[in-house]
């Protein structure tokens, strides 16, 4: 078996017990709030809360390690890109210029730039734990029901659930197809030169795509036979009613978001300055 990444594991914790729709609403509010604010105090407070929720959920490091590394890599790339393309962004925003080191040409490290980039990094740090948490603690079956509950059309919501259902099957198809292709001498490893490798890759992807299309036809016929898509609405086996705890959680997050918005916009600029 391959390593399982970002898949739901059945566990019991306050975070796991929360309603899927509540978690989705919280995640969206939290992300929007973190995107808007550049107030370091708010971001730090939110980061602490995120980490607290993360700790409470008791998810295992192994379940998300790979994804975390990938996200960190992107964070580093993003930080470098900001500096390369706009080394004086901080100075422009905060209106002051404290030079620390002059590198070359227009590249000067300023305290303002460092502070600005710290805030950007903080935004990531605020959102990432909740994103990972949402994926790891929401039962995929409940996820579609949650999407539908917050107003997404049920056909689209169900497509998400279907994708989760059939990804393992298609993965297995791919493994089998590539195995038989390799046995026929179709090499897709690094031993082959790139143009030939791409050509060989096509020999594997063609049957995979064709058999997937066939599969889709079968599935959609089977779904129609069971009455999918005729009603304007549908009910969900996995939907859970909102509990008191869910209302408390959503309510507190709304409050936090409101407080953060007030603090952020109190002085008319969403950039908090220490200069």
């Amino acid at each position: 078996m391959r390593a399982r990444m970002l898949t739901f594991t059945r566990q019991d914790s306050p975070v796991h017990r929360l309603n899927g729709a509540a978690k989705l609403i919280i995640f969206i509010l939290w992300s929007v709030s973190a995107m808007i604010t550049y107030d370091t105090r708010c971001l730090l407070a939110m980061l602490l809360l995120s980490l607290a929720a993360f700790r409470m959920s008791r998810v295992k490091f192994g379940d998300y390690a790979v994804v975390l590394y990938v996200i960190l890599l992107f964070l580093v790339l993003n930080q470098m890109a900001i500096f390369v393309f706009s080394p004086l962004e901080g100075t422009r925003i905060y209106g002051t210029r404290h030079e620390l080191v002059h590198l070359a040409g227009r590249y000067t490290v300023t305290a303002e730039q460092l502070f600005y980039q710290l805030n950007v990094a903080l935004k990531y740090a605020v959102v990432i734990p909740l994103a990972i948490l949402f994926l790891l603690t929401t039962d995929p079956g409940e996820f579609a029901a949650s999407l539908n509950r917050i107003g997404v059309n049920y056909k689209i919501a169900y497509a998400v659930s279907l994708a989760l259902r059939y990804i393992p099957d298609i993965q297995r198809d791919y493994e089998q197809i590539s195995f038989s292709a390799q046995a026929r001498g179709i090499d897709i490893s690094r031993r082959e030169k790139l143009p030939k490798r791409i050509k060989n890759m096509i020999s594997i992807l063609t049957p995979l795509i064709l058999s997937s299309i066939e599969r889709i036809e079968r599935i959609s016929a089977a779904m129609e036979l069971r009455g999918f898509g005729t009603g304007r609405r549908r009910t969900w086996f996995r939907s859970k009613p909102f509990t008191f705890g869910d209302w408390v959680a959503v309510g507190s997050v709304c409050a936090i978001v409101a407080v953060s918005a007030v603090i952020t916009f109190y002085d008319g600029s969403r950039f908090y300055s220490i200069f």
Binding site: G227, F228, T230, G231, R233, T235
Partner: peptide
């Protein structure tokens, strides 16, 4: 699945 599509209550 079929019950959901027929809007049967939970």
């Amino acid at each position: 699945f079929g019950l959901e599509n027929r809007e049967v209550p939970l």
